[in-house]
Nucleic acid binder design. Sequence first.
DNA 1: GAAATTGTGTTATATTATAACATAATAATT
DNA 2: AATTATTATGTTATAATATAACACAATTTC
Lengths: 161, 161
Amino acid sequence: MSIDSIAGPFQPGHNHKVCIRDAMNIAEQLCQSKDLRLTKIRKRVLELVWTGHEPATAYQLLKKLRAERENAEPPTVYRALDFLVEHNLVHRIESLNAFIGCDHPESEHVSQFLICSHCNQVAELDDSVTINNAVSEEANRLGFRVSDQTVEIMGLCAACQ
Amino acid sequence: MSIDSIAGPFQPGHNHKVCIRDAMNIAEQLCQSKDLRLTKIRKRVLELVWTGHEPATAYQLLKKLRAERENAEPPTVYRALDFLVEHNLVHRIESLNAFIGCDHPESEHVSQFLICSHCNQVAELDDSVTINNAVSEEANRLGFRVSDQTVEIMGLCAACQ
DNA sequence: GAAATTGTGTTATATTATAACATAATAATT
DNA sequence: AATTATTATGTTATAATATAACACAATTTC
């Protein structure tokens, strides 16, 4: 097993360059296939989001962007994030006011995260059917029609316990 | 069945004075039994939160508080909210940056909400075992130890569909 | 190539939240 | 009851997050 095959967050030894490369390739493909414009700014912000598996705040991203584009302002970043979030390339973590890259933007899904309060890394669940069913069940009981959900689970990842 | 017995949110006809009265009684009892100080400000902010089943932002509460206490400032409200949230009398809704009263602060529980995007009312689930189990199952699969969770389900309540 | 649409630049400001330090009120101790 | 310690509030300032509005540029459509 090469180091490249060790996947994603909560895996301290993983090769993050691979995560970035994969994410950018998927983004390019997705935007091409859906005829979306992955402009330079949007692409760069996406790369900056993928700097790590720790969520980044808009202003952290702005600071980095400014290092290379001195006229960047809050709207520059927020507009890029709006686009990226709209197309599932990035998710917003409500409890942190921060943003994290999504590694499967091509499949429609809701956001479900495990957030490690020690290393601050975030893992996205793969649209857990188990949780979705539980949510549906509760909503149905009350005649509530679900359109979206936010599931953010705080705790300690395996490596940090 | 008297109108008083029609419960809580998503029930347009319910007698909200009863919700408020009950919530305040429970708060008084809880604070007495736990030797917590439900000061005038805290009590008043709790009442203001209970104005309805729509979550209130800190600054909406501040505006109301100022109508009766002209020197109220942001810290006045945020400190009261800190206290109320700490003791489960109020929950913070992360996706709305807003606060909602809790009708069962005496039992330890995690926050799980149904949020109607039409009428803006919010119903708290009663610490759904179904959802908790689903969350635990997913977390266990990844060796993640859960300490807290945020579950916010957006959609349409029965009355608004 | 003209018109329409979409994206970016720029300035200003809205909204949400906290830091820091002074004073007041309450509780605990003597 | 007076002293001390603790907790709560008053007050000013500012940090952190996010959006409005309008001008201009780039791209797409016709």
